[in-house]
């Protein structure tokens, strides 16, 4: 069994690790991150190791300031760790900002708490633009954008601007945008924080369905206890270290 995963599995019955490890899409090993604030050094992550497999949903829970967003940023190649290793889709991540950007384009899809949609673009254009940034242009981008919007159940809202969509619908567009371009990993930061219970549940079920059907490794940073219902594993983080989630 993979030692770095063993202590924090949730009560759900997990598949055997040996079978899963061959399907690993994301791994961080002994990752540390230190920020300098004036003359002081603040160690936010203190040796975190975590791996996520294809089709696996991992919930990352922790109090404010525990380091979960920093860990998410590092897993998403937005931040570089002070020490440790990252592996995404079987490739070691290293190098300059251009290399990290390339990994973000190719392998990562983000879903944000505030949706972060482009207000001037329709649902379809929001997804298509993300594909354009990833280097997919023309009719191919348009068709792929339409496909993923259909996948999240927004086939009839493609021409709507974000202001004309409900919170749940906006988050579905954000999920479609994250899925566009078929990244191996989806990273979601408090995706249900701005949604009511019913809509939040729908979104989480959608996440779970898509992760399984599309074979994505999904990490959800959350305070929302409902996430436990859809997660294969719940991982806690406290003071920059992984911890038992039941301690929160």
């Amino acid at each position: 069994m993979n030692a770095m995963l063993a202590p924090f599995c949730c009560d759900r019955e997990a598949p055997p690790r040996d079978a899963l490890s061959a399907r690993e899409v994301l791994a961080v090993e002994d990752v540390r991150k230190t920020f300098e604030e004036g003359s002081q050094k603040v160690e936010v992550l203190r040796g975190v190791s975590l791996a996520v497999d294809q089709g696996e949903v991992v919930a990352l829970e922790g109090p404010s300031g525990s380091g979960k967003t920093t860990l998410l940023s590092i897993m998403g190649c937005i931040l570089t760790p002070s020490a440790g290793r990252i592996r995404i889709a079987g490739r070691e991540v290293s190098g300059d900002e251009a290399a990290l950007r390339d990994v973000r384009k190719r392998s990562i899809g983000f879903v944000f708490q505030q949706y972060n949609l482009f207000p001037a673009l329709t649902a379809l254009e929001n997804v298509e633009y993300a594909l354009n940034v990833k280097g997919v242009r023309g009719r191919g981008a348009n068709a792929e954008a339409a496909r993923v919007l259909d996948l999240v159940g927004l086939g009839d809202r493609k021409r709507f601007l974000p202001r004309d969509l409900s919170g749940g619908q906006k988050q579905r567009v954000a999920i479609a945008r994250a899925l566009a371009g078929s990244p191996e990993v989806l990273l979601a930061d408090e995706p249900t924080a701005n949604l009511d219970t019913a809509v939040g549940t729908q979104i989480l079920e959608l996440f779970q369905k898509l992760a399984k059907e599309e074979n994505k490794g999904l990490v959800i940073v959350t305070h929302d206890p409902k996430v436990r219902n859809v997660a294969d594993r719940v991982v806690g983080i406290r003071d920059g270290r992984l911890s038992d989630p039941t301690e929160h």
Binding site: F110, F112, N116, V133, R177
Partner: peptide
């Protein structure tokens, strides 16, 4: 924030 999003998605 939109430009930040552009960067986050690989721009």
């Amino acid at each position: 924030k939109e430009f930040g999003t552009v960067k986050a998605i690989g721009g």
